[in-house]
Amino acid sequence: MNTNNWMRKFWWKAMAIVLMLFTIVMGMLATVPTLPILNETIRNLYYHVPMWFGMTLLLLIGMIYSIRFLRSGKMDHDILAAAFTKAGVLFGICGITTGMVWAQFTWGVFWNNDPKENAAAVGLLLYFAYFVLRNSIDDLDKRARVSAVANIIFYFIFIPVIFIVPRLTDSLHPGNGGNPGFNAYDLDSNMRMVFYPAIIGWTLLGAWIATLIARVEILNREFHFSLNNFSRE
């Protein structure tokens, strides 16, 4: 087992902590545009939106590890793919929950079957199916191969479902159905200054969680191999 790779390094985790502290403090204190209906909830841009950005990036990393597994056959890559997907889905659940709270206070209901909400729910269900599929196969090699292929397919279904389909119809969500994207308030340079660090910070935090999941899994597997007196390296 390689104990000195990027997963065990601390500098990028320190960066996550610094960026998150910045996001928490400045997200509350920095000036924001005064807009009707949104009022102070516009600050959710620093917490709700990075959930989806982070989810997309974490799932992308998971998908890349699935491709790497198919090319290399290394079980570590399979474990990392599943771990990053898991962290991504965690972010997605947080994103949809926070989105519901935000919708309640700006659109009036927790769930109004908005195309964006429904598409996000479908996207999440897709990844729940991924984990059901993955855990239903007992043979480790077969599980790794099948779930790698499924992960790649699901990612390329997930992206259009969550980003393109809602844009084709009317939606209350910004950036969809003729609504201006972030343009209405993202032009504000005050918001950008917190928004971009927030995205990086949240994503790094998600990556940290993903590597912890992966390391537990790798350790678990190595432990079983060493019990069977079966050296891997």
């Binding site: 910045f22 400045m26 000036t31 005064t34 009022n39 340079s189």
Partner: peptide, 26 residues
């Protein structure tokens, strides 16, 4: 990287003006 973000905190004070409107803020 760290000093870059610390400098940003200083820069935020420069924009600490808000146009007076009737919109409810905290």
């Amino acid at each position: 990287i760290i000093s870059f973000f610390l400098l940003q905190i200083i820069a935020l004070n420069v924009f600490a003006q808000r146009p007076e409107t009737n919109v409810d803020m905290a």
